[in-house]
């Protein structure tokens, strides 16, 4: 690609207005007429278009590096990394929990076994970029991510009267209840989100709603919701439920 001519400032401003769609219809028509007759101008427009696209992608890349850093934090169990002793205690607790879980599973029915196999709490949202007026929500999200679901619920429920239909709030209140094994309350809140096609959480809400019904032994209800979810393990779970 060698067609990147020098572009004087005034020409650049005109090209930029064209590319950013800031021209009037008449200006645009006049400019496009000029464009069809002037090869250098065409090259300048293409070069500027790629330059702008490139700087936008560079900025996007910086943003997604930030997204990525926040993404990996919960997966790496950050608090455990800071305190090695806690790491060992946490590992011991996990072993005990797994052993106890395995013991308890022997006595559980097949629905509960499936629930235990497929349920994994939603990891929560990244809170670093929130506006200051969302402080209560964000603070509670930290509680949620550290497993203090009761504290998270207590805070989020204070926000609900002002925003009873808020999908984010209902989704996380629902998932927090589910994490606490309160399936009835979980279903109440998750249903508000699972029926909202405009919600970003709709498909995830369907998954957890299905799991909540499964935990309650309502397999057909569970199948209906899980089918609407986009969870990677959806097909595997459905296959077992439909056996």
């Amino acid at each position: 690609m060698n067609n990147h001519p020098e572009i004087p400032a005034n020409d650049f401003y005109e090209i930029e207005r064209y590319l950013l769609k800031e021209m009037t219809t008449q200006e645009q028509e006049d400019f496009e007429k000029k464009l069809s007759e002037d090869k250098t101008l065409t090259d300048s427009v293409n070069s500027t278009r790629l330059l702008i696209l490139g700087v936008q992608e560079a900025s996007l890349l910086a943003d997604i590096q930030h997204f990525h850093n926040t993404l990996t934090q919960p997966q790496q169990q950050t608090p455990a990394k800071v305190f090695p002793l806690k790491k060992w205690l946490a590992a011991a607790a996990v072993i005990i929990a797994v052993a106890a879980g395995a013991f308890l599973l022997l006595g559980k029915n097949s629905n509960e076994r499936l629930f235990a196999k497929y349920y994994k709490a939603d990891p929560g949202l990244i809170t670093a970029m929130s506006a200051s007026d969302n402080y209560t929500f964000d603070r509670a999200m930290i509680d949620y991510k550290t497993g203090d679901y009761n504290a998270a619920l207590q805070a989020w429920k204070t926000l609900l009267p002002a925003k009873p239909a808020n999908d984010t709030l209902n989704y996380f209140i629902g998932t927090a209840y589910l994490a606490l094994d309160k399936t009835g309350e979980a279903i109440t809140h998750l249903q508000k989100v699972a029926g909202s096609y405009q919600s970003y959480f709709m498909q995830d809400a369907c998954w957890y709603l299905g799991l909540a019904w499964l935990k309650r032994g309502q397999v057909q209800e569970a199948i209906g919701w899980i089918e609407k979810s986009g969870h990677p393990q959806k097909d595997a779970l459905l296959q077992q439920l439909k056996k």
């Binding site: 943003d63 997604i64 997204f67 926040t70 993404l71 990244i126 970029m129 970003y200 990677p232």
Partner: peptide
């Protein structure tokens, strides 16, 4: 519009798959 919240959600929700 390069909305940071939308981009972040899209990025984070699809990474595991």
């Amino acid at each position: 519009a390069n909305d940071a919240t939308a981009l972040q959600m899209l990025y984070c929700n699809n990474y595991p798959k």
